[in-house]
Amino acid sequence: MTEYKLVVVGAGGVGKSALTIQLIQNHFVDEYDPTIEDSYRKQVVIDGETCLLDILDTAGQEEYSAMRDQYMRTGEGFLCVFAINNTKSFEDIHHYREQIKRVKDSEDVPMVLVGNKCDLPSRTVDTKQAQDLARSYGIPFIETSAKTRQGVDDAFYTLVREIRKHKEKMSKDGKKKKKKSKTKCVIM
Rank of each mutant, 00 (worst) to 15 (best):
D119N: 06
I84T: 15
T124R: 10
F82T: 15
P110D: 02
V112K: 00
V112S: 01
E63A: 04
C80R: 00
P121C: 09
P121S: 13
E76K: 04
C118W: 09
N86Q: 06
I84M: 15
K104V: 07
R68N: 05
K117R: 13
Q99R: 07
M111W: 04
V114G: 01
R73E: 14
D126Y: 08
M67A: 05
L120A: 12
D126P: 05
Y71N: 13
Y71R: 11
K117E: 11
V125E: 13
D119I: 01
G77H: 01
A83R: 05
G115M: 12
R102H: 06
F78A: 01
N86R: 03
A66R: 05
T74V: 07
R123M: 12
G75Y: 07
N116C: 15
L113G: 01
N86W: 02
E76R: 04
R73Q: 12
M72P: 13
A83D: 15
C80I: 12
C118T: 09
K101S: 06
S122I: 08
V112Y: 02
F90G: 06
M111F: 11
D69C: 02
D108C: 07
F82Y: 11
A83C: 05
E76P: 01
L79G: 00
I84C: 14
D69N: 12
M67V: 06
D69M: 02
R102I: 03
D69A: 05
I100G: 01
Y71C: 15
S106M: 08
P121L: 09
I84N: 15
E63F: 02
T74F: 05
P110A: 03
V109G: 02
E107L: 09
S122W: 08
A66P: 08
C80H: 03
G77N: 01
Q70W: 03
K101W: 05
F82G: 15
F78L: 04
V109A: 04
L120G: 12
R123G: 14
L79S: 00
L113T: 01
V109D: 01
D105E: 10
R73W: 07
G115E: 04
D108S: 08
R97A: 14
T124W: 07
K88R: 08
P121M: 12
C118I: 12
K88V: 09
L79P: 01
P121H: 10
S106L: 13
M72A: 11
Q70S: 14
G77E: 00
V81D: 00
L120R: 09
Y96W: 15
R123S: 14
F78I: 06
T124F: 09
R97W: 15
K101E: 11
I84S: 15
R97E: 11
V114S: 01
D69T: 08
E76N: 08
T74M: 06
R73A: 12
D108A: 08
S122A: 11
D69E: 11
P110W: 01
M111R: 00
L79A: 04
L113K: 00
M111T: 02
L120M: 11
G115A: 14
G75A: 15
R68C: 06
D105T: 03
T124P: 10
T124M: 11
Y64I: 02
D105R: 08
S65H: 06
S122F: 08
S65Q: 07
V109T: 05
I84H: 15
M67Q: 06
Q99H: 09
M67G: 07
E98A: 05
G77I: 07
P121N: 12
Y64S: 04
V114L: 09
D126H: 10
T124K: 10
M111I: 11
I84A: 15
D119E: 08
M67C: 05
R123V: 12
R123I: 09
R102L: 12
R68A: 09
E76Y: 13
P110R: 01
S65P: 10
A66Y: 12
S106R: 10
I84Q: 15
R73Y: 10
R68H: 08
T74L: 07
E63N: 05
V112Q: 01
Q70L: 04
N116P: 00
P121F: 12
A66I: 08
Y96A: 04
A83S: 14
S122T: 13
L113V: 11
N86C: 05
Y71V: 10
E76G: 05
